[in-house]
Nucleic acid binder design. Structure first.
Length: 251
DNA sequence: GTCCAGGGGTATC
DNA sequence: GATACCCATGGA
């Protein structure tokens, strides 16, 4: 695994550079990781978090269908999808609308400090139901997103997220879009990064550029672009998306 | 001052 | 179905 491209490709937000690697704080975990190893987390949880159960070589081979993908994969060998906690992932991408990554990181750290749990100087993310004050949420810097985060905090359950993992893609996508503030893009991020829906293909402004510039797409509607990509790349389209997103942003 | 940033809701044609 | 505008905010 290549830690830099994996952690800094916009899927996870609460990490800090430490020594020669990173400290990651997510769910109930706070651990250190670099390109040579890790500490502070059990191997079972580490392997789950970085999707070591995937057949990485086979997946990369399956999605490398053209020269664009060959360039993206060659640029970031070892880039992996992360299997996140669905609730933390949901709040993360509710924070992500029409803003930038540094600000998402700032807001999530504020939310963890204000609503979460402190242990040995580490601020862990709040659990479902604990983000229960809209004004404090706005003070975290979330702006108009506060009302959505607060509403979703009062609706979802652990069971809801477990169901999303068992549903087919379309059903799970529809279920997420029933929630306030969650449209097709944020729903795809939640499914891909935390619900084992590897065919989900989130399309933000950067992925729209990729599909128009590099894949000749004309219609810029979400459903058109997303269904094209899912058909073209197949069952692991989400992995292709992560390579292309990171590649396009760093050209 | 203007534009853009891992969007979504709503009104309007 | 597409398009326009609004939502708050910060950095370029």
């Amino acid at each position: 695994m290549h830690t830099q491209s994996t952690l800094e490709s916009g899927q996870l937000f609460r990490y800090w550079k430490e020594r020669n690697g990173y400290r990651v704080v997510h769910g109930a975990h706070s651990f250190y990781v670099d390109d040579h190893g890790y500490s502070g987390i059990h191997s079972v949880d580490f392997n789950s978090f970085f999707r070591m159960d995937d057949d990485y070589g086979a997946i990369v081979a399956a999605i490398t269908k053209d020269d664009v993908m060959r360039r993206a994969v060659a640029a970031y060998p070892g880039l992996r999808l992360i299997r996140q906690d669905p609730w933390e992932c949901t709040v993360s991408f509710l924070c992500s609308s029409a803003t930038n990554i540094p600000r998402i990181q700032r807001d999530l750290n504020n939310i963890a400090r204000v609503f979460g749990h402190e242990n040995n100087g580490v601020h862990y993310f709040p659990k479902i139901g604990e983000i229960d004050d809209v004004e404090k949420l706005k003070q975290c810097g979330t702006g108009y997103r506060a009302k959505f985060i607060h509403a979703v905090n009062g609706i979802v359950t652990r069971r809801f997220f477990l169901q999303l993992k068992k549903m087919d893609y379309e059903t799970a996508h529809d279920a997420l879009m029933e929630l306030p503030g969650i449209g097709p893009k944020i729903a795809d991020c939640i499914l891909l990064f935390s619900c084992d829906q590897m065919s989900a293909f989130p399309i933000d402004t950067w992925m729209e550029k990729v599909l128009v510039d590099n894949y000749g797409r004309r219609k810029r509607t979400y459903t058109h672009l997303s269904s094209f990509a899912r058909d073209y790349f197949g069952d692991y389209a989400g992995y292709a998306q992560q390579f292309l997103y990171h590649w396009k942003r760093n050209l």
